[in-house]
Amino acid sequence: MATISADNHGLRLVVRYVVLTLIAVIFIFPLLFMVMSSLKPSDQLLRDTASLRAFLPVGDIGFANYADAFSRAPVALFVFNSVLVTGVTVLLSLFLCSLAAFSFTFLNWKGRDLLLGIVIATLIVPFETIAIPLLLLVSKLPWIGLDGLQFGWLNTYRVQIIPWIADGLTVFLFVQYFKDLPRELIEAARVEGASWWQIYRRIVMPLAGPVLATAAILKFLVMYNQYLWPLIVVQQESYRPVMVGLQYFFQLDTAWGEIMAYLTIITVPVLAFYLIMQRAFISSIASTGVKG
């Protein structure tokens, strides 16, 4: 009996892995295509797209595309700009949006429902539709810096960061998650005389691991893939992000090999970020179990 059930268990395990792996194949192939193509000369790359050779490191393999990509465009600069803008925005966004969501979820105050309604309505506004009004706005906004008061935010990092910190989706994400937290905890803390800041800092945020990770990933993706906005507010190469940099490779005679190399390079930070987040994500699971 015992051996049979062990076999059965083993078989089921195999089936599970086979299913997981088959699904994995469906999801991984474009990345495989991208990475493999980055190693091939353009003409071979294009010929290989017709067959499974596209996913194999065959033929004339080398790193020439990478060298060419670096000489065509300041790749490191673009990656730096994107990582900087994305990193700062994600951090500020997590803080300010969770703070607002905390207030929307746990506090009662006049005007709360109206403001929350407005925030949720902004979910519906696609960025493309407000880009031009926003451009006109930021081109006139004041800023106090080392040189005193100035007007106009064009050609800066801040113009790529500040308008993107708060958005309806991130706030909404936190609100939906906070709703699942037990209110008794908060009320008990209030009874004991904790300030709202202490409750936010010591009770709610430590429980917010999964939603922080989700919101961070979402924001990271949005920011890292910015294209239209930096295109219209940044004219100096020194502030350009990666997706605008991608356009450097679309010449009349498009260098597909270099494009694939560039794409591979710019995908690395996102993948790394996800893997770090995933770890944070898993470790936070143990601490939850708050709901019940």
Binding site: S139, V233, Q235, V244, Q247
Partner: peptide, 20 residues
């Protein structure tokens, strides 16, 4: 200052709108 051709016109129009 060089711009990628694909998006050059958009950059100029945006800059003109913003007076830049």
């Amino acid at each position: 200052e060089s711009f990628p051709q694909e998006s050059y016109n958009d950059s100029v129009v945006a800059a003109a709108l913003a007076g830049n």
